[in-house]
Design a protein around this nucleic acid. Structure first.
Length: 154
DNA sequence: GCCAACGTTGGC
DNA sequence: GCCAACGTTGGC
């Protein structure tokens, strides 16, 4: 089983939105980056766990745990001409973009902020990808030791 | 295949 | 709103 971190802007889709979704499950659509597409399509498996991370907001940080509920399948929002994430280059017979379904597992009682994560960067969270300069991938793998340490902060 | 221009991300 | 750090595009 693998661990991940998945970013979302709460003004677009927050952990509250996920908590209120039917069966607390939703498709993670809108990824338009090839590296992240490859992870969605090839590497993420049902049962994998991910931190949900709120970005571009007052307090960026980890807000809970989600579980991969359905493995990679074509992102149909790319086929919808009216959708904000429409991509004419992605066709149903040759999809370019993929998504997974995620299910809310645990909502943290507090935000584990980026600031707090950085306080452990020189030790327990050394080399965590989200803390690396210039990292802009919306999904990153998380090492097991980093995962356990962050869970212990909660 | 190079690389400049442009677009996006995301913290601050 | 600024800007660093990328990814993508497209002319050559």
């Amino acid at each position: 089983m693998k661990y991940w971190l998945m970013k979302s802007e709460p003004s677009t889709f927050s952990i509250d939105d996920l908590a209120n979704a039917p069966r607390r499950t939703t498709c993670w659509d809108g990824v338009r980056n090839y590296q992240v597409r490859n992870m969605l399509r090839d590497e993420m498996a049902v049962g994998d766990l991910a931190f949900m991370y709120h970005s571009s907001c007052d307090e960026p940080g980890i807000v809970g745990v989600i579980e991969i509920a359905k493995p990679g399948y074509p992102d149909h929002t790319a086929f919808d001409r009216k959708h904000a994430h429409y991509d004419a280059a992605s066709k149903p017979e040759a999809p370019r973009w993929y998504m997974v379904d995620v299910c809310l597992k645990q909502r943290f009682s507090r935000v584990i902020s980026l600031d707090e994560l950085r306080r452990h960067e020189s030790k327990q969270l050394r080399d965590m990808l989200i803390l690396k300069r210039g990292n802009r991938l919306s999904i990153t793998p998380v090492g097991a030791s980093h995962w356990k340490f962050i869970m212990s902060l909660q």
